[in-house]
Design a protein around this nucleic acid. Sequence first.
DNA 1: CATTTAAGTTGTAATGATTACAATTTTAAA
DNA 2: TTTAAAATTGTAATCATTACAACTTAAATG
Lengths: 137, 137
Amino acid sequence: MSLAQDHLISHHIKPSVQRLSIMNYLLQNRTHPTADMIFSDLYVSMPTLSRTTVYNTLKLLVEEKAIQMITIDEKNARYDADTSLHAHFRCKGCGEIFDISVLGMETVRVQADERFEIDDMQLYCRGYCKKCKENHL
Amino acid sequence: MSLAQDHLISHHIKPSVQRLSIMNYLLQNRTHPTADMIFSDLYVSMPTLSRTTVYNTLKLLVEEKAIQMITIDEKNARYDADTSLHAHFRCKGCGEIFDISVLGMETVRVQADERFEIDDMQLYCRGYCKKCKENHL
DNA sequence: CATTTAAGTTGTAATGATTACAATTTTAAA
DNA sequence: TTTAAAATTGTAATCATTACAACTTAAATG
């Protein structure tokens, strides 16, 4: 029984070959890939795969909260199989996105209680990673 | 002396008519507008304005930290003249973006100290606002 | 199991925000 | 002034994402 299959089923998503493959990719690759990265990488071993299917599947996975969409990169949406409460850092030099654990994020109390019903919270940080800082950009 | 002019000069941006008008718009309209909203609204009283100038100016303003870009909306970038530490809430019903003050956001210590040099931090929340919740979406 | 229906996938074409670029205008400098 | 640099403009290109119609696969019914 694959992790990907369990993950899909527990989020009420019928596991097709394509969905399993995309879900598995995201579980394996914690690099916050774009839809196109996922497509390109899977395409080599699955040449019948369509880009549209990748987009459709990602949308479904996000709707069912099986993964999360990250909008820290203005250009493309990024996807993350880790839906636990953690922050993201994007390096303005190399563009890489890193996970950051945030102490006390649970305790960040948003002054919004009655005004809004919050489903989802994301903390984004931007700057330069160590490597890029040393290589002057 | 206009606020917009002071704001530009203090951020080392040469104040042209177009830049002043865009900066002023953002100081006046705290609605987190898109580039196109800014263009459309200014265009009526400034028919020589170009959409490209709006994009160029917004990019410059962000680079000089005179305003901030918000990527809570996957479709379009939003812009905010308020660069102080505050969070944003986007309603998945009506699409409106609200400011939220966050107690303790300063104290959110990111476990990233030596790994990253953080320039900028943003907290995004998504869900439904009171009005949309009542009107069942 | 045969057949009908629904769900999922595919490829192409459209959309829409943003950027590239070359021409023109405005501002600053010599 | 004349010349050079900076800013603006309009159009065309780019590129991620979505719409859509055709096709395929899976499920449901009898």
